[in-house]
């Protein structure tokens, strides 16, 4: 069993899986976002966690995503949430393009520096969402809930970065071994 897994780890299929793992992760998070949570009031403040994962991979491994996959993931998110179709696709794509463009500027920076950039990016994303939803509904959505949702995303970010960072290190180590 261990031997066959060891062989699989050396196979091309495993390397391919690793390469597309950021896409799978975002997909998984989009599904998780729709899991019933059964906490009172949670459904009114549910944060869009997939934005954290898109941010992380856009900064640290943008080559694995690509504009089409990012767009399609956003579209899927829009189709599942009953929100404006194209909104998450637009946000995911915008984040991906801007962050992958400044990849060299953001990588190898301290956590606090990236956290500040993340808070700014999330603020802009929330603002765009809020404005588009206002236009869509012809009325102002509740601002307080969006603020709470934003605060939750800010709280979740360090936890996600911890695990995603570990995985990213594994990917880097793996690519070094493959290169050798």
């Amino acid at each position: 069993m261990q031997q066959s897994f060891g062989k699989f780890k050396e196979s091309k299929a495993y390397n391919f899986l690793l390469k597309i793992s950021p896409i799978i992760m975002i997909l998984f998070i989009i599904f998780i976002e729709h899991a019933p949570v059964y906490f009172s009031y949670f459904s009114f403040i549910r944060p869009q966690i997939s934005l954290i994962v898109v941010f992380f991979w856009s900064v640290y491994f943008p080559e694995s995503l690509g504009i089409f996959s990012v767009f399609l993931l956003g579209l899927l998110s829009d189709l599942l949430f009953n929100s404006v179709l194209g909104l998450s696709a637009f946000l995911f794509l915008l984040m991906y393009v801007l962050l992958s463009e400044y990849k060299n500027f953001l990588t190898n920076r301290s956590f606090s520096f990236v956290y500040v950039i993340f808070s700014f990016v999330m603020f802009c994303a929330s603002l765009i969402k809020y404005l588009i939803m206002t236009i869509e509904n012809n009325s102002l959505p509740p601002l307080m809930q969006e603020v709470v949702s934003y605060a939750m995303i800010m709280c979740f970010y360090p936890f996600f970065v911890y695990f995603l960072g570990k995985f990213n290190m594994y990917l880097i180590g793996r690519s070094i071994n493959v290169d050798k």
């Binding site: 729709h34 899991a35 019933p36 949570v37 459904s43 009114f44 403040i45 549910r46 944060p47 869009q48 599942l80 949430f81 009953n82 929100s83 969402k129 939803m133 959505p141 509740p142 809930q145 969006e146 709470v148 949702s149």
Partner: peptide, 15 residues
């Protein structure tokens, strides 16, 4: 059975 909860601060719906 409620399969998925698509509610957030902008829309309230379930599947």
């Amino acid at each position: 059975e409620v399969l998925a909860d698509s509610s957030n601060s902008y829309a309230q719906s379930v599947i």
